[in-house]
Simulated assay, not measured.
Amino acid sequence: MIDMYPFRNAVTVSHMMTEPYARRAHVLVDMTCGNGHDTAFLARTMPDDAVLYAFDIQPCAIERTRQRLQDEGLGDKDVRCCCGSHEQLLADVSSDVDIIVFNLGYLPSGDHKIHTNCEITLKAIKIGLNKIAINGIIMI
């Protein structure tokens, strides 16, 4: 399995650690979907009956994520893309969450003045800790 994931960067390490959980998850959340790479990974890996929430504060990130899902043939997966602040959107997820993924920073090829805010992210993490399912994970 390690051959599948060369340790190129933090994202590949995150995917390697998340994959076993994603394969059996029912509810997944990508807190900062950006260009949709993590969202597509989770959608490819999750069971067919799972639901994936993809959040971002920037409308262009939501559109890029939707386009990536279509381009990668994942349009039939239950992925709910929502634009807004991740702490508010996570509060609206009604069920326990098996996986929460944060890929923090700014949107690549986007406006670098818009970036993850520490205070808001800490609020989202606290909400996530109260929503995480037994044996679930939060990847930051």
Rank of each mutant, 00 (worst) to 15 (best):
F7W: 10
F7M: 13
R8W: 01
N9T: 11
N9K: 11
A10Q: 11
H15L: 07
M17K: 12
T18H: 06
P20S: 07
Y21E: 03
A22T: 06
M31W: 08
M31E: 10
M31P: 01
T32M: 00
T32L: 05
C33L: 10
C33T: 14
G34N: 07
T39L: 06
L42H: 01
A43F: 09
T45P: 07
T45K: 00
T45V: 02
M46Q: 06
M46S: 12
D48F: 02
D49M: 07
A50S: 05
A50Q: 04
A50P: 00
I57C: 00
Q58I: 03
C60F: 02
C60G: 02
A61T: 03
A61D: 00
I62G: 00
E63M: 05
T65S: 07
T65N: 08
Q67K: 13
R68M: 14
L69A: 05
Q70V: 12
D71C: 15
E72Q: 13
G73K: 11
D78Q: 10
V79D: 14
V79A: 02
R80K: 13
R80G: 13
C82W: 09
C83P: 05
S85Y: 12
S85H: 15
E87R: 06
E87K: 07
A91M: 06
S94C: 14
D96E: 15
V97Q: 02
V97I: 13
I99W: 04
I100W: 00
I100K: 03
I100F: 03
F102M: 08
F102C: 09
N103D: 15
G105P: 00
Y106T: 08
Y106M: 09
S109H: 12
K113G: 08
H115S: 11
T116L: 01
C118K: 12
C118L: 07
C118Y: 14
E119A: 12
I120F: 07
I120M: 04
K123S: 12
A124V: 11
K126P: 12
K126R: 15
I127E: 13
I127D: 05
I127T: 14
N130W: 09
K131C: 13
K131H: 04
I134F: 13
I134C: 12
N135Q: 15
G136C: 04
I138P: 00
I138Q: 08
I140A: 15
